[in-house]
Design a protein around this nucleic acid. Sequence first.
DNA 1: CATATTGTTCGGCACTGCCGAACAGACCAC
DNA 2: GTGGTCTGTTCGGCAGTGCCGAACAATATG
Lengths: 282, 282
Amino acid sequence: MAGGQGGEAGPDGEAADRYLVRSVARAIRLINIVADGPPEGQPLSDLARALGASKSTTLALARTLTSCNLLRDVRPGPRYSLGTALIRLGDIARSQLPLGDICRPVLTDLAQLTKMTSRVAICDEGYPVFIERVDGPGSVRFHTPLGQREVPHASAAGKAMLATMPEQRVREICDQTGLRAKTAHTITDIGSLLANLALVEERGFAVDDEEDAEGILCVGAVFYGHDGSCAGAISITGIKGDLPAWRAHELGRTVRRYADKISELLGGPRHADLAAPAGARA
Amino acid sequence: MAGGQGGEAGPDGEAADRYLVRSVARAIRLINIVADGPPEGQPLSDLARALGASKSTTLALARTLTSCNLLRDVRPGPRYSLGTALIRLGDIARSQLPLGDICRPVLTDLAQLTKMTSRVAICDEGYPVFIERVDGPGSVRFHTPLGQREVPHASAAGKAMLATMPEQRVREICDQTGLRAKTAHTITDIGSLLANLALVEERGFAVDDEEDAEGILCVGAVFYGHDGSCAGAISITGIKGDLPAWRAHELGRTVRRYADKISELLGGPRHADLAAPAGARA
DNA sequence: CATATTGTTCGGCACTGCCGAACAGACCAC
DNA sequence: GTGGTCTGTTCGGCAGTGCCGAACAATATG
């Protein structure tokens, strides 16, 4: 055994998908290491250590990535940080998701009306993935990462999406994630969550009352695609102290209205038309 | 010669930087092929053809990228399109550029005030690279790619940046790019361009009057970093027909003011303080 | 100046990326 | 139904190439 992998133990643990290209996977891990590092970048040695590869290997990978502008080295004492090509690819990725272009104008309007940060998430196997964010005028900026799976039980968009699923599926997802507490207000009990989701279903919007972050309030609502299934959710985010308690409901109705607007653009049904039949006929 | 590279001829043309990892470079090319393709994605065969590699190789690369969420395959008849991890990385890349976080609130305000799309570009070796875009309320959305080098002579941000450079450098850059005409109004003559830049320098803002795209008007202005050098430029974009001609100057002053605001946030000098000394002391 | 870092280059081994060929479904023409 | 061509997938096998380590150079830090 010459190469010898160094850091990783034995047969790579997963071995899930065969036919993977090792050096490419390693290069991507390198990108993620840089992404998770400090904004000013990291020197080569740190990267090699974190990657579990030799300096020469890491240099070759970093050079390759740099030549494609996925990474860039800031000049004095080469430190590597993310490159502009990632901005380009991320921008294209967002506009290729059909939702991106459709939702942006709606988010812009919503952000301006409510003066809050508004976002849209797609539904990725039941988990919310935020793909777009529009800040309101003068609104405080929150650190809200885009493009990664979030836990659904602690966000307005996530709960709005859960509320459209059968109870069985909700239990499955919650078993996977574990209902971890992110603040003292996070719902960590499956019974309470299901009760909350019933309320969400009835109202047509979900409220995250400091359940994801202390002092932050979110209101979210789902929209539907042309096939009638849940396509994603929008939500608005603000500082709880800035809002009188009674405004939550008003904001909820507003978000519900804008979500219906997106459903309409997608050729899907409005929320009320989906919920009504059973109750209305009784 | 066993592998045989297929598409590319001989010793890879450049051979510029040695120590590159071939499979990684190929994987990145694959990502770019997907990015330049249709939003609904492309089947494996097309990718293999475009990449100049065998299907099996392409499959291995695509699988690897998919397992990291850089690509995703839409299920019936696997078609590959860009994955959500790119959205995440692009978002992080933007916020790692110190300018991103600083400019976004300013852009938001500017977009709301002018009801136009506002953008910010960094100065990448003299070329503008737009890194952030904020749409105005109700504004038409333009297809304005982020994260890639633009030619400087045909955009407001680019001309604003050129105007801060010595004439020699401007000529260098223009020699490289060639002053290609993008519309009938594009300045394609170095003399006219230099004259225009002098005006830009004096006014403190640049105007792109249908020079980049037919019917589109942009106004841009540079801002300065703590070392007093040009750090980038902001610009606003709108449909020319919607604006009375006299508004260009008013918008110019507005953009100039907001650019100064960014300079201030960066600890840099205002434009007027930079231009004045020689004249004021005389 | 000495020491401990870092970034860079190079030789060489064998692992791994790569291709081609063979297989299996889907789709279309006839 | 059957023959064709298109897909996507799996597999053997060769050598090219990714990888490491060691030696070097260029910096910081004492």
